[in-house]
Design a protein around this nucleic acid. Sequence first.
DNA 1: TTGAAAGCGCTAACAG
DNA 2: CTGTTAGCGCTTTCAA
Lengths: 359, 359
Amino acid sequence: MAASPSLKTRAARRSHGRATLADVAAAAGVTSITVSRYLREPHRVADDTAQKVAQALAATGYLPNKQAGVLASGGAGASRMVAALIPSIANSIFAETVQGLAETLQGSGCELLLAATNYSTAREEAQLRALMGWFPSAIVVTGRRHSDGALALLRQAQSRGAPVIEIWDHPADTSRQQGGFTQIGFDHAEVGRAMAVHLIERGHRTLAYLDSGVAEDFRAHERGQGFVAEARRRGVTARRVVAPLAGEAIQAGREALPLLLDGQGRPAFTAVAFANDHLACGALLAAQALRLDVPRQMALLGFGDFALGRQLQPTLSTVQVPRLQIGTAAAQALLAALDGNTAAAGQRLPWSLLPRNST
Amino acid sequence: MAASPSLKTRAARRSHGRATLADVAAAAGVTSITVSRYLREPHRVADDTAQKVAQALAATGYLPNKQAGVLASGGAGASRMVAALIPSIANSIFAETVQGLAETLQGSGCELLLAATNYSTAREEAQLRALMGWFPSAIVVTGRRHSDGALALLRQAQSRGAPVIEIWDHPADTSRQQGGFTQIGFDHAEVGRAMAVHLIERGHRTLAYLDSGVAEDFRAHERGQGFVAEARRRGVTARRVVAPLAGEAIQAGREALPLLLDGQGRPAFTAVAFANDHLACGALLAAQALRLDVPRQMALLGFGDFALGRQLQPTLSTVQVPRLQIGTAAAQALLAALDGNTAAAGQRLPWSLLPRNST
DNA sequence: TTGAAAGCGCTAACAG
DNA sequence: CTGTTAGCGCTTTCAA
């Protein structure tokens, strides 16, 4: 009876009706630390004690209070919560990444705390600030460009031992890495250059890159920069054109087609690379409506390998990217880091240009 | 100096290097409770004190420890964490729902704790058990079918004041509601009946429903039951056929086509309704490869209104569903319940059958 | 308007 | 192998 205040007092203060360790302990005729031990290191509990505890656990329907657990064990790495900041979940390219994260985290005792940033670094910072309150054990952010405030938060998290992983980006040029965080992705400038090379090799000499109209879709812009730079390096004309912002990306692609035509409604470029397959498909459909011949009058090259592009006529040439794998690899890397207490390893993941019938 | 143990002791125990309320208080020359008050009810703090606290807050870069906050304020409803259990995130139909949830929760001080159940009630229960450890303020689950264990957990959560919302389902027949939870969605049997009616009105008399091969995709099965029942009620032949389980749904649809043909490779049905647009599109493409005339030899009707179906030739007739709206409505309902301390209101959301060119 | 004391549920550290 | 003690960082309650 010397142990802790009376049950009445506790229950009064407690607004939730859930059993606590103390309740289980009382039912099992031991103290709470024994129950706690049974839960965390069962081999250190005598067999007959374990039996009683197990029964009490079942009888009370005990569920651990993780807030209390994390608080008691010091916060750092203890929460096994993974905070993930993703530009847009509805966008299928990231949906699969989130799926990969969620699936791989599953069963490793990690929970996924998810927030959408809407391609805004300001929003990313705000979300990050809120999520940090939970002391996530690891943080996954998209891309390597962050606001100064976000950068400070990420560094702080990393310095207290939480792996920070930047996904979807991994520039070969290491001078472009800002925070020194683990990166799992690929080099977008390199993809852009490969897109230019592909079109040039098919004989095109008047190129355009139709960039995303989303201001902070940095990776799309970077592919565009690589594209234009490579073309010019090879003495080929290349221009960056920016897509309008429509509600839906396919629609934006449709609306972008006029920007790729001259005053007489004829193609102003012989080949166009797009920031993503949705834009490319929209443009392709609009081109067909105008009875333009793709690829003869104008070749189109997408990015992302979305389902739609595979089904259109002509099939869309595109760049296949490891959407799901980025999520699973990030989760594996952070789990390894958490469990091994080491730094998470970066990874450059493979992509490939898929020539189909639109180029 | 009588206040709290020396800073050395605390810092030693603390493995994270983050500033606490006590640190901020020390910097401001007040006690921690004053800082806490400033954060929660600033109007109850004197102006000059507030100034000092604000400065100290900025100087220390204080971030609240939400674990501690929730623990102290009793757990119930305090976490403002929303746990969401979704069958599959990669599947675009749910991706938009998650996006709606995330967006609407944003800025309301709620965090989204997400888990994928892979269309498995067993997995749902396991995930739910894990997430409950965080004392979520609200729980969003998909559909109304749950394991007994999950049901018990949900009831427990609800009884301690956390709204439980079932999304994507809302049967008109209230006897089919198991848990008495708030439902935001629509009646799938009704959709199935409408699909049958549509095909029958177009003159078809030999129908099939190509059901999802995923065993626990209950809503797809229910649409199928409604479909078959309505057809038979009207004296029309209707059979349920189950799609094979392929890695990708479009591929599953392609592989399902043979199940819809007779021994001579001719359509065994004049019209087929599908569990979703991916299956329907796959079947449509496979049919075209066999030079079958859609809709004349076989009419196809999808479900979900995915982007692909709008772009194929013929365009796919389908059922448009409020994917995004289910997410936003669920978030709004639970926010209202949390802030107003009332029960969340259920909602039956509208859907519509979109006749296009495949029927 | 501010503070002191107590406690949320759990775990680390040390005794026995 | 089990228990005692002392916190984790915050909020609640009561007192000044």
